[in-house]
Design a protein around this nucleic acid. Structure first.
Lengths: 186, 186
DNA sequence: AGGTATCGATACCAAAGGTAGCATAATTGC
DNA sequence: GCAATTATGCTACCTTTGGTATCGATACCT
């Protein structure tokens, strides 16, 4: 389930560097046509590559989306003087990222697919959830279970709202979410 | 998009009363095989009816799931002496319902489908969200926007956890969710 | 130049949502 | 009892989509 996109040394034609183009095409297509409308054929066409080329690098649509999201999110910002400030920064960053075109819809879609795809669920847990969880629990000094609960509240709420309205959460509600989470972690 | 399952008077063969069997079959199949594994063919077979019969009553899989969930949830309990008690009762009831076999997975699945299906989104909003929202905001005397935010937090968190782990939320975390929400609504 | 690995293109498969058509069964009204 | 009417089960079918197989062309290393 992990990506196959490694560049082997030796003879033979080298792989074209199309990752960035495919990621951009994926987010753009999801933004324009929704997760279900973003078929592999369309993503490939919009990226200017053959569908077979994508499947030579990523073993499934889920794996592609996960890599695309890892690329879109990058590392969590952990800046801030107090624990509360760090937490607030992280929550606002999550909300902002989910609000970027295509990111929220792709995020929600891959979680949906994961419900009935254990391999994808493991991929999400190890490649996505675990790194952010570890970084946050280290920085904030929170026990894992509590930190996991808070992450589920933040991500679950943001994605659910996105799914119900089709649009990212408004400023007021993000403020409320921040306040609620900060209060929760004292 | 609304259900077609009305019993017209007059001549002709009357409709068989298979709603309960179809609802039960739907939840059982979703519980055993997951939302994606619960295909219309399998749901029909497990209910002992033809697939065409189901499509004569519900115009789509989404519409079937929505009706099935309305049947499974029923009205929100609004008992409790204080506002806090009412809120706690409602949250625990939501968590318990989502924990019932098939309900959580079907709930998460239909929300997922709704992301890229505007008609289904409207159906969920009007038939599902609106009644519970109205009942709660009336009973608790909260403004709509605030009540909607709290509902999104509760439902979003519960469903996200369900999607990530495949199991309903544990007792401790439900307690934390209740406390968090009660604190939020003062 | 020769060997090798990748590319694009086409054709293809299986699964799933949904539909059409038809013979048959169960009613109501005469 | 019989015709009209409506629902049911069944089979066959269409479309979309994720994913695979094959094959000639191409770009690189030695």
């Amino acid at each position: 389930m992990a990506r196959t996109n490694t560049a082997p040394r030796g003879p033979g034609r080298p792989r074209a560097s199309v990752d960035a183009a495919v990621f951009a095409s994926t987010l753009r297509t999801v933004d324009e046509l929704g997760y279900a409308g973003a078929t592999m054929d369309r993503i490939a066409a919009a990226a200017g590559v053959a569908k077979t080329t994508i499947y030579r690098r990523w073993p499934s649509k889920g794996a592609l989306i996960v890599d695309c999201l890892l690329d879109a999110f990058g590392p969590v910002p952990l800046s801030g003087a107090s624990r509360e400030a760090v937490l607030e920064t992280a929550v606002r960053w999550t909300a902002a990222k989910i609000g970027e075109p295509g990111v929220g819809a792709a995020f929600a879609g891959v979680f949906t697919d994961a419900v009935s795809d254990p391999a994808l669920r493991r991929l999400l847990a190890t490649r996505f959830q675990a790194p952010y969880l570890e970084a946050l629990e280290k920085r904030l000094g929170e026990p894992e279970q509590r930190m996991l609960f808070v992450i589920d509240v933040v991500v679950g709420t943001l994605l659910h709202r996105m799914g119900m309205t089709g649009e990212p959460m408004g400023e007021e509600d993000v403020d409320a979410l921040v306040a609620m989470v900060v209060r929760e972690l004292l």
